[in-house]
Computed example of a mutant assay.
Amino acid sequence: MQSMYFTEEHQLFRESLRDFLSKEVIPHIDKWEATGTIESFIWKKFGEMGYFGLATDEAYGGLGLDLFYTVIFLEELQRVNSGGFAAAMWAHAYLAMTHLNKNANHEQKLAYLTPSVNGEKIGCLGVTEPFGGSDVAGMRTTAVRDGDEYIINGSKTFITNGVYGDYCILAAKTDPSAGNKGISIFIVDLDSKGVSASKLNKLGWRASDTAELAFDNVRVPASNLMGCEGKGFTFIMEAFALERLVMGINAHARAEYALEYAMQYMSERETFGKPINQYQALRHRLVDGHASMDLCKQYNYGVVYKMNKGEYVVREATISKLKSTEMADKVAYDCLQFLGGYGYIEDYPMARMFRDSRLGPIGGGTSEILKEIIAKIIIDKKEYRLPKD
């Protein structure tokens, strides 16, 4: 535990959360991985424990805690060894609910944020489309005003919680001629007439429901517009920093857990009369993985510290996701190799870790896109500033 960032209260929270996950989540993980469905009771239990409200104001049922509680929440979720389950939880709390926390009005918060804190409503974020992911300004989904409603047409894809969720924080163009200034954000109930969801069959993250959503003349009350028309792009860009930092933290925690498991296995597995952790080729390879993991971990904690103080950490969060997810992929590859043939068997945890880790350099902005963002900052001197109201 890093005393520079974590207090005794943080440590007690970690111990309590780890105990909760051990008793209430881990016994069900294999079933949820096999069925691709997370049973509804666990959402309510997370809500009762306050885990969805760590970053939400107390006025709406949250706890209003600092970001290092969020770090602990993300790190401990990786230890259940289900990237899909973890993603369902953090996509609800830190993709959908981030927009409700920051951009919803009082009535919207009462209707959606408080039930989300309590685990009574499950949210998802709808930005990515079949025709483009990181090209947010190029989205094709439209929202046309019709009296006291908007009529939404279009589609979104790779939407975590999109099949079994209750609402979607949806980006759509209210003025297609205005480029990124014509994008707005809506809260759309997923049981609305005209909404359909197709479940995607993924390589990893098997426990989570990932959807392609279609919107066919879906009528949404004008009161479900967040902010005002044209503010959507600003809202999305502001939230990207947190999303990428979340994925960087997930990655270092995933790698740390993989290394712990591999070290335990290597201490018990013997060949030629000695544990395999005594072979220099394996020892040094594991040390390389541990060093890379710890560098990312300490960097990520530093970025969280800056964000917790209110700094706009676009560059730092982008670097966090880029380097941490690529590191975690390498660590998962090596740790599977340490297990030999057993690493390739589904009864051992490394196979799932290996598959789940592969999404890291893809989701939330591919490594290629992230490198271009960083290049614009450090080479082209592009400045990203906190959006003004």
Rank of each mutant, 00 (worst) to 15 (best):
F6S: 03
R14T: 02
L17C: 12
K23H: 12
K23Q: 14
G36N: 09
I38C: 11
K45Q: 14
E48G: 01
A55E: 01
A55C: 06
I72E: 04
S82Q: 06
G83N: 02
G84N: 05
A86N: 04
A87I: 06
A87N: 13
A91H: 14
L95C: 06
H99C: 06
K102G: 01
N103A: 06
N103Q: 03
N103S: 05
E107T: 09
K109N: 06
I122Q: 03
L125D: 01
V127W: 05
T141M: 07
D148K: 11
K156F: 05
T157N: 12
F158I: 04
I169A: 04
S177K: 01
A178F: 06
G179H: 09
N180K: 11
N180E: 15
K181D: 14
V188T: 15
K193S: 11
G194S: 08
S196E: 08
S196K: 13
T210V: 15
T210R: 11
L213T: 10
L213S: 12
D216E: 13
V218S: 03
P221E: 11
S223E: 15
N224I: 03
N224T: 09
G227C: 09
M237I: 01
E238N: 13
E243Y: 07
V246W: 00
N250T: 10
R254P: 03
E256N: 14
Y257Q: 13
M263N: 11
M266K: 09
M266N: 11
E268S: 12
R269M: 13
F272I: 07
K274A: 12
I276W: 15
L282G: 05
V287Y: 08
H290G: 07
M293D: 05
K297F: 13
K297D: 09
Y301N: 03
Y305K: 15
E311S: 06
V314A: 06
R315P: 00
E316C: 00
T318P: 07
S320W: 01
T325G: 14
Q337L: 03
L339N: 04
G340R: 02
I345S: 09
E346Q: 10
E346D: 10
D347S: 10
A351W: 09
F354M: 08
D356H: 02
G360I: 10
G360F: 02
I369F: 15
I373G: 02
K376E: 13
D380Q: 12
K381I: 00
K381E: 14
Y384P: 00
D389I: 08
